[in-house]
Design a protein around this nucleic acid. Structure first.
Length: 341
DNA sequence: TCTGGGGTCCTATAGCCT
DNA sequence: TCTGAGGCTATAGGACCC
């Protein structure tokens, strides 16, 4: 039987800001965008005090401002959060080398080979993270990643939750399907439409029916996930598949000069990034989101992988030419994929 | 009215080749 | 020569994650 931990930092960005500015402790803090709630941007993290006003991640900053004008709005400081993240990840590595980092503030840890009881390991991890960073986290303990992630969410903040196979019917089946990794807003609405709201209700549907609704891959996944089945291994090392930059204009624009100049800036960033990390890519994709929020992409694949500014720029403008720029543009982006070292 | 930025993976379609 | 089945690659869009 595997023993997997999921470690999830509590309100990570906001907690770091409160840690370095103690006068913010106990206050509603909203981290997102450039910290100006009258500008375009969304909430990255809201402190628990801010969440009481209904503010949550991915909410437009302007909406958050309306809900709580007195909240402290701060810009995202990725450099600082990455430093804290490195301390946390290296702390976790002391416990087990089998670690999968999930973004900046989460990780899975495989402790199957350790003799110490998992709840003792979890408590010790929480102590060590508190000592080194002053921050709290929530930890889920389960036989697989799927259940460990659900578990870590069950007693937030600062909790430890153990889920075993025996708990699936009693403690998992009553939860909303939304708690399953891979079930987002669209799938939730679709499932509601066929009368399925909880994980238990999902588990009552046959494999064939689910495949009929969601296709082979996703259907089979949902069938297993609703039963708490997940054999997926921890990914301890992975290579990037693509790198991209995009920007949303403060106001929608129809000036081609501004659009193409922004694109050139993004292309330079992406080319610098490729060179710095030692990758070359073959496919260049330009993305445009119009004022009606409809998003389109155009792609060009070149013969040989490249990190050359000139080649990427050429391919990107081949793509840009193929757009009809009749509506105002909200966002422009560039991606290079098909990466190799 | 509002809806970021950086990613991954999946699906459908179309063209080309055998 | 015609037709079709598969495989492969490129492309476009969409859902989802943090």
């Amino acid at each position: 039987m595997r023993r997997i931990l999921h470690i999830d930092m509590d309100a990570f960005f906001a907690a770091i800001e409160q840690k370095r500015r103690p006068e913010l402790i106990g206050k509603p803090v909203v981290v997102g965008g450039n910290g100006d709630p009258t500008k375009r941007g969304v909430v990255s993290t809201a402190s628990y005090e801010a969440r009481r006003f209904g503010i949550h991640s991915a909410m437009p900053l302007m909406t958050a401002y309306r809900l709580c004008p007195d909240a402290v709005f701060l810009p995202v400081d990725y450099e600082e959060y990455s430093k804290v993240s490195e301390i946390i990840m290296s702390t976790l590595r002391d416990f087990s080398p089998i670690i999968e980092e999930v973004g900046i503030d989460e990780a899975f840890l495989d402790i199957s080979e350790m003799d110490t009881p998992p709840e003792e390991i979890a408590a010790e991890i929480k102590r060590r993270i508190k000592d080194t960073t002053g921050l709290t986290c929530s930890i889920g303990i389960a036989p697989n990643k799927l259940l460990a992630k659900i578990a870590s969410d069950m007693q937030k903040p600062d909790g430890i939750t153990i889920i075993t196979e025996n708990d699936i019917e009693t403690r998992i089946w009553s939860l909303s399907v939304r708690k399953l990794w891979g079930v987002g807003p669209k799938t939730e609405v679709y499932l509601k439409g066929i009368g399925i709201r909880t994980i238990g209700e999902l588990a009552s549907v046959s494999l064939d029916t689910l495949i009929g609704h969601f296709g082979q891959s996703h259907g089979a996944y949902l069938y297993k996930a609703s039963r708490g089945i997940d054999e997926s291994p921890l990914i301890t090392h992975w290579e990037p598949k693509s790198t991209s930059r995009e920007t949303t204009f403060q106001k929608d624009i129809n000036n081609y000069q501004i659009i193409s100049r922004s694109l050139i800036d993004l292309i330079r960033d992406v080319a610098d990034d490729l060179k710095q990390r030692g990758y070359k890519g073959r496919t260049v994709t330009v993305k445009i989101r119009f004022s009606d929020f409809k998003t389109y992409t155009r792609a060009k694949t070149v013969m040989k992988p490249t990190d050359s500014l000139n080649e990427i720029r050429w391919a990107a403008f081949q793509c840009l030419k193929r757009f009809e720029l009749k509506k105002k543009v909200r966002l422009i982006g560039i991606r290079v994929s098909g990466l190799e070292k």
